[in-house]
Amino acid sequence: MGQRLKFMRKYWPLYVLSIPGILYFALFRYIPLLGSVIAFQDYNIFKGMWDSPWVGLYHFQRMFQYSDFLLILKNTVLIGVYDLVFAFPVPIILALLLNELRLVVYKRIIQTVVYMPHFLSWIIVGGFVVGVLSPSTGIVNKLIGLFGFEPIYFLGEESYIRTILVGSGIWKDSGWGTIIYLAAIASINPDLYEAAEIDGANRFRQIISITIPCILPTIVILFLLQIGNFLDFGFERVFVFLNPLNNQNGEIIDTYVYRAGLVERQYSFTTAIGLFKSVVGLLLIVIANRFSKKVSGEGLY
Rank of each mutant, 00 (worst) to 15 (best):
G145I: 09
L146A: 06
L146M: 10
G148K: 08
E150D: 15
P151V: 11
Y153D: 15
F154K: 03
F154E: 01
F154P: 05
L155T: 01
G156Y: 14
E158P: 00
S159R: 14
S159W: 03
S159E: 13
S159D: 08
Y160C: 05
Y160I: 03
I161D: 13
I161Y: 03
T163H: 14
T163W: 14
I164T: 04
I164K: 02
V166K: 07
V166Q: 00
S168I: 11
S168C: 09
G169T: 13
I170A: 05
K172C: 07
D173W: 08
S174C: 05
G175A: 03
G175H: 07
W176L: 07
W176Y: 15
W176K: 09
W176E: 11
I179G: 06
I180L: 14
I180E: 01
L182K: 01
L182H: 06
A183Y: 10
A184Q: 05
I185P: 02
A186V: 00
S187W: 05
I188H: 10
N189L: 06
N189G: 02
L192A: 07
Y193F: 15
Y193N: 11
Y193V: 10
Y193A: 13
E194R: 15
E194K: 15
E194V: 13
E194S: 15
A195G: 04
A195L: 00
A196F: 06
I198A: 10
I198V: 15
I198P: 00
D199K: 11
D199I: 08
D199T: 09
D199S: 14
A201F: 12
